[in-house]
Design a binder for these strands. Structure first.
Lengths: 210, 210
DNA sequence: GCAAATTAATGATTTATTCAAG
DNA sequence: CTTGAATAAATCATTAATTTGC
């Protein structure tokens, strides 16, 4: 549809004067192409983030924006982007930390969980992401499975259930383990539970470090 | 429509300490008529949930099940039910929290930002958490807001933008006030920056940055 | 000391996924 | 099954840091 000319003049050299000034004070003369937050603005934004704000609503953005204007020029979109980026990068950071943590664990095998060691979540060594959607190839297979699972579950739910054996599900050695105990603790648990995209352990996936 | 049942089984109550208790050890003596997850099992299941798994496929269920058997007896249907219930209840919980938040907001007239101290960001007195995901009680409020953002940003992104205002995003005076130092409506020198997409959030009152 | 050159951060866009109405 | 809204991931692009040669 819209083929953005990749070669547009991104240059926009803007002849920005390398004013070398360290503080991006709201000096209007600097017609920079992008928002350059002041220290105060950053401080406030981070404070809001710590308060739990992640994806502010339009109204919130408005309020925040007008509030931040006293410290320098800023628009709503800047606030919007800031939260987008900050959230994403915090998550990214944590993934790396978690990854490092797991790597460490793999080198120091934790005491084999007998029965009461809380933890051990590492399951797949594959990206995993939310792979629940991509385990099927023909498109209907999954549906079938689901239904089957459901049916099996509900129908047979009487007494003598016996490993219903949902399918020709060969155990496959896919899920070798390399368990590692982990559960909270690592990282600043600043994500809330309600959010359904914690992706705490996605680090197996799109990890860019390497 | 697809509101998961609500009172299925499994209490998830932190199962009592394994020691000595009749914790559902792998002995299918069927002392209880229903699955009683062990703490380890819960931990793992929650971990998987955090990883993004919501509705595992039959295969995944199978894998998870066999994995969890290490910590106590369990069947595929238990896993299946657990995800069903957990998903539904998390959603329910979040809706409630969000609703509470909004109720609070409605009772506390939008706190006039007494901005002065840089460090203290007294925006919302409540933790706020992240209500962005479901702040609707009836189901439309949030939609409106988001839509506004989206439409303004992506669709209207064309030419001279000017506070499109395709919404009752009435300022409500909530955020008006101070800091009005920079007016702008005057010059309407909109095209200041060569970026087309800049209109993303015009509705915030496309004011010049500086 | 200072700028050009290089690297690291981070603002801004675009693309892909997810979810749930219709 | 299709589609729109919302959001996260990936990517692009610019600015600040910093290194480096003089």
């Amino acid at each position: 549809m819209e083929e953005e000319d990749q070669e547009a003049d991104h240059k926009v050299i803007t002849s920005s004067p390398p004013s070398s000034s360290s503080s991006p004070s709201p000096s209007p003369s600097s017609s920079s192409s992008r928002w350059n937050p002041t220290k105060e603005q950053i401080t406030i934004l981070e404070g809001l983030y710590k308060q739990g704000i992640r994806t502010p609503t339009a109204e919130q953005i408005q309020q925040i924006t007008s509030r931040l204007k006293q410290y320098g020029c800023i628009e709503g979109k800047n606030v919007f982007y800031w939260f987008q980026n900050h959230k994403a990068r915090q998550r990214q950071k944590q993934r790396q930390e978690t990854f490092a943590y797991f790597t460490t664990l793999l080198h120091h095998p934790p005491p084999p969980p007998p029965y009461n060691t809380v933890g051990s979540i590492g399951f797949y060594e594959q990206p995993l992401h939310q792979c629940q959607n991509s385990m099927y190839s023909s498109g209907t297979v999954r549906m079938e499975m689901k239904k089957a699972a459901a049916i099996n579950g509900f129908s047979a739910a009487s007494d003598h259930y016996q490993t219903l054996e949902l399918f020709p599900l060969h155990p496959t050695g896919i899920l070798e383990d390399k368990c590692a105990s982990s559960n909270e603790s690592l990282g600043d648990g600043d994500e809330e539970i309600g959010c359904e995209n914690m992706t705490l352990f996605n680090f197996f996936g799109s990890q860019r470090l390497c």
